[in-house]
Amino acid sequence: MWDYFSFSKGLSEKLFSREIRFQEFNDEWKLQSLGDIGEVFNGLSGKTKDNFGTGKPYIQYKQIFDSSKVHIKNCGFVEISENENQNRVMYGDVFFTISSETPKEIGMSSVLLEEVSEMYLNSFCFAYRPSSSQVINPLFSSYLFRSFNFRKEIIKLAQGSTRYNMSKGELMKLTIILPSLEEQKDIAQLLFSIDSKIEVEKTILNKYQFQKQYLLQNLFI
Rank of each mutant, 00 (worst) to 15 (best):
K197G: 02
T97H: 03
I136R: 03
N122S: 11
S141G: 08
L121I: 07
G169C: 03
G169W: 00
K156I: 07
K152D: 09
K156P: 03
S167W: 10
S161Q: 11
L157Q: 09
Q209P: 03
D195L: 01
N137D: 15
K173T: 13
N149M: 09
V89W: 04
E153N: 12
L178Q: 05
I177Y: 10
L113W: 05
S132D: 11
M90V: 07
S131F: 14
E199F: 06
A127G: 07
L174R: 07
L144H: 05
T97A: 08
S100V: 08
N206A: 15
Y128P: 06
T162E: 13
P103L: 10
L191N: 02
E201M: 12
L139F: 02
P179M: 02
T97W: 05
S147V: 02
F150I: 09
Q217H: 15
P103C: 11
Q184A: 10
V89C: 14
E118K: 12
L157G: 05
I204W: 00
Q209R: 13
P138V: 00
N165G: 15
N85I: 15
M119W: 01
E105M: 12
F124T: 09
E182P: 05
N165E: 11
V135A: 06
Q134P: 00
S196C: 09
Q217A: 15
S132R: 10
N206R: 15
L144Y: 04
I98N: 10
N122T: 13
V89I: 13
L157N: 09
K168Q: 15
I194S: 01
Q213L: 13
L215E: 10
K185E: 12
I155D: 05
M172C: 08
S110C: 04
T175H: 14
I155E: 13
F148I: 06
N85W: 00
A188V: 01
D186W: 03
Q189I: 07
Q86W: 05
D195M: 05
Q159F: 01
E201D: 15
I176C: 06
S117G: 02
E118S: 12
Q209S: 11
Q217C: 09
I136T: 05
F140L: 07
M172D: 06
F96A: 02
L190C: 05
R163M: 14
L121Q: 03
L191G: 01
S123Q: 14
V200W: 04
S141D: 04
S147F: 04
G92C: 09
K104I: 08
K104Y: 10
Q213Y: 12
M90N: 08
L139P: 07
Q209E: 14
S110E: 01
R163L: 13
N137W: 01
L112C: 10
C125L: 01
K197V: 03
T102Q: 07
L144K: 03
E201T: 04
Y164R: 07
I98H: 08
K207E: 12
E182L: 10
E105H: 14
M172K: 03
G169R: 05
F150W: 07
L216E: 15
I198W: 00
T102W: 02
S110V: 04
M172R: 03
L215V: 07
F140T: 01
N85F: 10
R88S: 13
I136V: 15
S131R: 13
